[in-house]
Amino acid sequence: MQEDYINIILADDDEDDRLFFTDAFEEIKITTRVKTFNDGVYLMDYLNTDGIQLPNVLFLDLNMPRKSGLECLREIKQNEKFNDIAIAIYSTSASEEDIEKTFIKGANIYIKKPSDFKTLKKVLSEVVTINWQYHTNSMNKENFLLRF
């Protein structure tokens, strides 16, 4: 049964963004299971819980209270257990500094939150269907930021 759906997690402190996210996946014709967390602490607590199903793709907002996306990224990359999780940075801004930092820390892709719903759906369905094995091998700074 595990192969039937893609397991997706979003950590974002913004309620509206979480709503757009889950709404978008509901409309996408891909079987997914989406879980959202309000900040990094909740996310890490969940990820570190024994026996849970680890996500295939993790969407990380950067600017969150208590524990930022960057901190989560560092912790995840330090733990071999999470090696198979594809990490997508999911942020409002796309400043050079943020892109640089997250790229170095080992995120897989950087998504600037789109400002219309259609684009959002398109972007999300694209990201979850990426062959991560292939993408990671050919990853460079140029294709790190997702263009849409």
């Binding site: 509206d16 409002t92 801004s93 939150k113 789109p114 400002s115 219309d116 719903f117 259609k118 959002l120």
Partner: peptide, 24 residues
């Protein structure tokens, strides 16, 4: 700059997203 790029864009982006959903 950060406030301008991030915090100001965020509400605006939401306005735009809601508008797009409203339209659709």
């Amino acid at each position: 700059n950060y406030v301008a790029s991030h915090d100001l864009q965020e509400p605006l982006r939401k306005i735009q997203t809601f508008l797009s959903r409203l339209e659709d």
